[in-house]
Design a protein around this nucleic acid. Structure first.
Lengths: 102, 102
DNA sequence: TTAATTGTTCGTAAATTTGCGAACAAAATG
DNA sequence: CATTTTGTTCGCAAATTTACGAACAATTAA
């Protein structure tokens, strides 16, 4: 890291691992928040899953209300929309390549 | 990596480093393709920049025509649009949280 | 109260990422 | 032809990431 951490890079970083994508997709597929055992869906040690959840939490994309035996993980709407906007904008800025572009 | 590499994760991976974001933004800001010395814009060793470019190239997001003393780096429109669509879709699927969501 | 359930934190090992300089390649220029 | 320019590749070291099991909370259930 050679400079100030880019916010977009932070979100990308949170989403750059297949397991974290899977976790987020699972949360997205829920009517409301997810509660239950994530290891039912993703075959990893719970400590490993906990670590991935931590990454997503620290990026702000999800929030969890954890009253130890019971847990609830949700996408954080607000941050999610913000990240969405940043990605939208990032990908939008590409103008069509001019035909005379060499 | 515990499973088949997720394509979205691959793009996120390519974009998860501030320097790579900076490189892509530089390329996006060009009328056409970029040619010149990237170290003018990003204060890193050229070998390091070369590595970051390699990551972006392997993800397919950029392409470079390198005839050694001269170089041209471009966003790869096709892959870019594909990645854009994947991110759009990924972020779009979030329905508004129901008010009765507990 | 004791056991069961569920999740986090800690320590550790293996793999990957990041960054650098040195060495190397390949074309342009003197 | 030698030098300059520009970029890649090759070690190498430091930092980070990933994954695991063990130990540790904290609440629920027996």
């Amino acid at each position: 890291m050679v400079e100030v951490k880019n916010e977009l890079a932070t979100y990308a970083q949170a989403l750059c691992h297949p397991v974290r994508i899977a976790i987020v997709e699972l949360l997205l597929s829920q009517q409301c928040c997810y509660h239950g055992d994530l290891t039912d869906h993703i075959p990893l040690a719970k400590s490993t899953l906990s670590q991935h959840l931590k990454v997503l939490k620290e990026a702000g994309l999800i929030k969890g209300e954890i009253n130890p035996p019971k847990t609830r993980y949700c996408i954080d709407d607000k941050v999610w929309q913000k990240a969405a906007k940043m990605f939208y904008h990032f990908f939008e800025v590409l103008p069509p390549t001019p035909v005379n572009c060499k």
